[in-house]
Design a protein around this nucleic acid. Structure first.
Lengths: 252, 252
DNA sequence: TTATATTTGTGTCATATTAACACAATGAAA
DNA sequence: TTTCATTGTGTTAATATGACACAAATATAA
């Protein structure tokens, strides 16, 4: 969708949207990709509407592809936000005044929107384009600890996504898509510490990770560091996918 | 909603429904509460539509209250089913012929329905009424291993709910609502074994459960059994709720 | 060339948890 | 009072965890 003329709500599932919390990892910070809305001084999660003849999960993937230019990312439904306050009522006057939405579509935008929350883990460096479209004017990463003003409940959605990610770290590995193809043990640990917001013991972390058997030693080391060169690892994709599928640390 | 005349789709979120997988535990079997649809030889999960001015989670609770007569149950969203094949196309002719839906509403029923899946844990004995309404003629428990023919993807929804429950058993206790107020350790173990579909060691199970500190010894024993009288336990509600809230067996 | 600072890789040890197993106690029925 | 099924609890070996310390590598400073 490039501009307003292309926008037509007749094929859209009324009152339903998808919103994607994109987690990136940079500079030992967990970051979220946000869009700055035109004519509203607030930011929003990348999201979209659901076509009546499109699979909902496919629409979430389409958001990432069309608005951010990302394909094949790890994307997962985590919650449906369906409370009554979810609408753009307070913003519709500005949106209409600035020609972002047409008066014909006003009812569509004023209704309560139920949104399906997805989270995705993406390699920070892969998102370069600051795509703009008919409703957003900028696309930037923001530290999860320093979020700008956001529309409706998008801050809560991010919070819930983060809680979900933390919890899932107990039963599933992460790192793929968040880290470059090859990475060191300290880098992997920094990712875990950032997501979990706590320090972990270096030696115990390494032992535990290696025991999961999802890492492959590439027999290379990261060069050009001003201290002992750390081993470069890759994920063993077969075992990694197995772990994603079956989970680990199951107690029963 | 007692009959067809009361049914009006103008206030309903089009193409959206909620469906509830009610787990019950009886005779060492995991059972699911199902509705037999009028004029279709298939069963369905108790579900409902979403009013545009109702909170989605509240609508799921309303389904349980209005259709099953249940209040204050543990009810949890687990997945949104949004693929393209989710519609009643193949059934609308029968439904119209038998006067279950009116021709005026045909478009409403033929559209693709996105449904929010909830699961609930309920005490088997508390559901007695076989409520019938304008679309269902019976309401019965079915063993999860012997499900009747079901509409659309309701079998898949049950499967996914069961998988979710199994997985969540690693981080959260269950039992409250599935068992009577007072229960014995072997009864609790039977519940776990049924949900997990595997045998557990009696001694290790007992030790682990007691270590979670969610059980209170009532200093009573189940009488009238033809062997050693087992201790009756209750859940320690404070610790139980704490465990539900914070989870347990977190590894990081 | 050598010393220093920093960071990485790995080992140890005490403690806690788990899995596998056995035996005594209880209560009804024979 | 013997038998039987079932419950409660203890033991032990193997494994995992948490808290630690030291040696190796590498750039930089001396």
């Amino acid at each position: 969708m490039r501009d307003l003329e292309d926008f037509n709500d007749t094929n859209l599932q009324p009152g339903l949207s998808v919103d994607c919390v994109l987690f990136g990892f940079d500079n030992n910070e967990l970051k979220i990709l946000l869009l700055k809305l035109k004519s509203i001084e607030k930011w929003a999660l990348p999201g979209g509407f659901v076509n009546v003849d499109k699979d909902v999960n496919a629409e979430a993937h389409a958001v990432l592809k069309n608005r951010i230019g990302l394909e094949n990312v790890f994307l997962k439904q985590f919650y449906l936000f369906g409370n009554l306050e979810r609408n753009l009522n307070t913003h519709t006057p500005e949106l209409i005044k600035n020609g972002i939405i047409s008066t014909k579509r006003i009812a569509f935008f004023k209704q309560r929107f139920i949104t399906v929350g997805y989270y995705a883990l993406v390699e920070y460096s892969k998102v370069k384009e600051t795509t703009v479209d008919f409703i957003s004017e900028a696309c930037e990463w923001h530290s999860i600890h320093n979020l700008p003003k956001m529309i409706i409940d998008h801050k809560e959605i991010i919070l819930k996504a983060h809680q979900t990610l933390k919890k899932e770290l107990n039963t599933e590995p992460i790192g793929l898509n968040l880290l470059p193809k090859q990475f060191t043990m300290p880098e992997l640990q920094a990712l875990y510490e950032t997501v979990l917001e706590k320090k972990l013991d270096r030696r115990n972390f390494s032992r535990k990770m290696l025991n999961y058997n999802i890492l492959k030693d590439t027999n290379k080391r990261r060069m050009g560091v001003k201290h002992k060169a750390p081993i470069l690892y890759e994920f063993d994709m077969e075992n990694y996918n197995q772990a994603i599928k079956n989970g680990f640390n199951s107690i029963w």
